[in-house]
Design a protein around this nucleic acid. Structure first.
Lengths: 230, 230
DNA sequence: GTCGGTATTATTGTCGACAGTTTTTAATGC
DNA sequence: GCATTAAAAACTGTCGACAATAATACCGAC
């Protein structure tokens, strides 16, 4: 038997969860998953346990694992937490860094922004957007903030995708709505303007949050009426 | 066999980790733990998996579970993360609440402060201090922030205890150093002064952080030279 | 002594089985 | 029909065993 089923199974279940292949509030069937992955229940349970602690599932003793409920409040709380983490990360990234480090960071961010301008593929754009935010967080030099943010990101990814697709489809003009906000953040970092950078980051995420709340409605239909699932 | 070994084992291992009964960086021996708890390895592994995701241990494939390294940087990052979470929680607690809710919160906080004044037992005081902060976080009405903060709390508890014991032992006067900060936060909440409350919370935690950095040195000796352990 | 390589031991990863619970289904009485 | 209870099925929680891998001890050559 291969030796790291758990890791593989973990990655796959997580991906399924991110794509909402599980119906919210439904119970997870361990044996079905085990069968699907061609393993015993052990690696499945191991994966699910990790995913509980990461906020994807809940667990009730003697009942099993359940998919996290999926309501506006949950999503709001995710975005609010992002604001908490990322504003502080921005502050730290600026206050801890030397001039050189800050310049390097600004460079990195700008090259992400350039890449953003050169593609219309929503998947890629979500990916780049995430990279932008992670770069700043990494600059804060705090493994805990990084850990939490990457967890939040993976849980918000689904909504981001839906949201982004919608906006790209022509609801608004790309340049006006999407572009400049990122630029402002980079500019403030370059100029070491802590307060303005933090404020820009806050507004950036809060704006996304509003749009995501919208996206939830669309997501609901996508999940519940998009073909058969158990 | 009883039906919830995993929960019991989880709680016990976590408590051991909080008291640093495991030597940082050392490998966790699954069979030894299983023996100690009178179970098989299954519940032990289940517990460890959860604790990895909660930041107590790390995991390397085909090597096993390891106790998180224990250095000033780790601790600094924990406190910085607390600042991120709690300042935002304070902001939300004020902006989301009605006048009545805010008054109720202030009442609750003040009764915790009264309790704080009536005991010198460090254990109890750490507990009350934690309650104070959790009350504010709960008022933010955000399950995610709450989840993260209670995780952070459990991981800093050890340092808080050491720190508090030291301060109570007479290094400083209790009233001057410890008392007023909390009061200011309550006052700002009562008056709905968001910015001041956030600032007060930030300073409160940052001050603790500085003291905790000190405490780390003491903790080191406590862990490494406090009798035999494996 | 120490270096390299091999045998031994310890430890992890996975499995299938079974006992203990919960949920579902069926049956009975009203 | 509908509620109540009993039986059956489905599912979870735990275990002991074994295979795969890593760590350690041993041993001979130099």
């Amino acid at each position: 038997m291969s030796q790291d089923q758990a890791g593989r199974v973990y990655a796959q279940i997580r991906e399924m969860a991110e794509k909402f292949a599980f119906r919210p509030e439904s119970q997870v069937n361990e044996v079905a998953l085990a069968k699907k992955f061609g393993t015993s229940r052990t690696p499945v349970r191991e994966a699910l346990n990790r995913l509980v602690a990461e906020g994807y599932f809940t667990f009730q003793a003697r009942k099993g694992f359940f998919v996290k409920p999926f309501n506006p409040r949950e999503i709001l709380s995710l975005y609010e937490t992002r604001v908490a983490i990322e504003t502080e990360a921005t502050r730290l990234a600026i206050s801890k860094s030397t001039d050189d480090e800050r310049a390097a960071l600004a460079n990195g961010l700008q090259s992400v922004l350039r890449a953003l301008e050169q593609t219309d593929d929503p998947e890629v754009r979500v990916d780049l957007d995430e990279q932008f935010h992670m770069l700043i967080c990494k600059a804060a030099d705090n493994p805990e903030l990084e850990r939490i943010l990457s967890n939040l990101n993976s849980r918000v990814r689904f909504f981001r995708r839906i949201d982004l697709k919608h906006r790209l489809s022509g609801a608004t003009t790309k340049g006006a709505e999407f572009g400049p906000r990122h630029d402002i953040i980079v500019k403030c970092i370059k100029e070491s303007d802590q307060n303005k950078a933090v404020q820009a980051m806050r507004h950036h995420i809060e704006r996304r949050r509003e749009e995501a709340t919208d996206a939830v409605a669309r997501a609901f239909t996508a999940i519940y009426f998009d073909g058969d699932r158990r």
